[in-house]
Amino acid sequence: MERGTMQALITSAAIAVPSAVGLGVMAPEVLGILYPAQSDEVAVCIAPLRWLMAGMVCLCVSYPLFSMLQAVGKPAAPLKIMLFGTAVKLLGNLLLIPLMGVSGAALSTTLCYVGILLLALRAYLKSSGLCLPFVPFGKTAYSGAMCGGAAFLARSAAYRAGASPFTALIFSALAGAAVYIFLIRGLIGRLR
């Protein structure tokens, strides 16, 4: 049961972490390519998109936990946890939007998903009696951070060489992916 739990959670994190880090680092380029005619809107959306990325990771990891909670006989727990998350989101919106604007809404969403993940993990560990090691999650986070650093450095080098935003995006994504795969390959191999 512990091995299956770790496989599900690490696989979710291994996909979500580099996606979130990469999108956070490359937010201006991604938004600029997707919405080339709306530069003012893109400028406003860069910071909120970055605020959302930590929440995205938490959301991706919490979904397998919801299935696992149902498997250990707690089918009502995900609903209760989501209701708590909704309350956090509402309270966060009321407090943070007046202070931070659109970024406040993004931050309240991230806080909502962090709360959901923590409650789901707590409920699952309590119900299953498992004690999961933290090290694989730390390695995943470290690999994701290095992925983001490589993407940032590659983007900077591409712009110094006179590259377009699209070329810088591709170059950064490839550099980040190469570093991430190099660092994470051993961890994923051990989970099989």
Rank of each mutant, 00 (worst) to 15 (best):
C58M: 13
L52M: 15
A8I: 02
A158F: 06
G149A: 01
S164I: 12
L111C: 11
L94R: 10
I10S: 01
L9V: 03
A151W: 04
F134T: 11
M100Y: 15
A173Q: 07
A43D: 11
A173L: 15
P98D: 13
Y159H: 11
I184Q: 08
A157G: 00
L9W: 01
L79T: 14
L153R: 07
S19Y: 11
S164D: 12
M56K: 00
I116V: 15
P136N: 01
E29W: 02
A157C: 13
G92A: 07
C112S: 15
I15P: 05
G22W: 10
G176A: 13
V42K: 04
T11C: 08
G115C: 06
M6G: 02
L107Q: 08
V72S: 09
A150V: 07
A178M: 03
P136C: 04
A151V: 13
L132V: 12
G148I: 10
L9M: 10
I116G: 04
R155D: 07
V114W: 08
I116E: 11
R160A: 11
L94H: 08
S127F: 09
A151H: 11
S19W: 05
V102W: 03
S172K: 06
L99T: 01
G104W: 06
A20F: 11
L31T: 05
V72R: 13
I181F: 11
A87L: 14
V102M: 13
I116M: 11
R155C: 10
G148P: 09
S39G: 10
F182K: 14
L121C: 13
Y180E: 07
A175P: 01
P48H: 12
S128F: 09
F134H: 06
A163Q: 03
A177D: 06
A173S: 14
N93A: 15
I46G: 03
P78N: 05
A20S: 07
L96N: 14
L91G: 06
L99D: 01
I116H: 04
L90Q: 03
L23P: 03
L9S: 07
G144P: 10
L121E: 10
M26W: 00
V102N: 08
V88W: 01
A37R: 12
L59V: 10
L118K: 13
G4I: 01
C45W: 07
G148M: 03
G129F: 05
P133F: 05
L31W: 03
S172L: 09
S12N: 00
A163W: 02
A105L: 12
F152L: 14
L99E: 09
A158I: 04
P78F: 00
A37E: 12
S127A: 15
T109L: 12
F166C: 12
M56G: 06
G186D: 15
R185S: 15
A145Y: 00
T110F: 11
A37T: 13
A151P: 03
L187M: 07
C131P: 01
E29S: 08
V88P: 02
F66Y: 12
P18G: 05
I15N: 01
G144W: 08
A47K: 08
A37F: 10
L99Q: 15
G129P: 05
T109M: 12
L132G: 11
T86R: 06
G186N: 12
I33V: 13
I46W: 05
A177R: 08
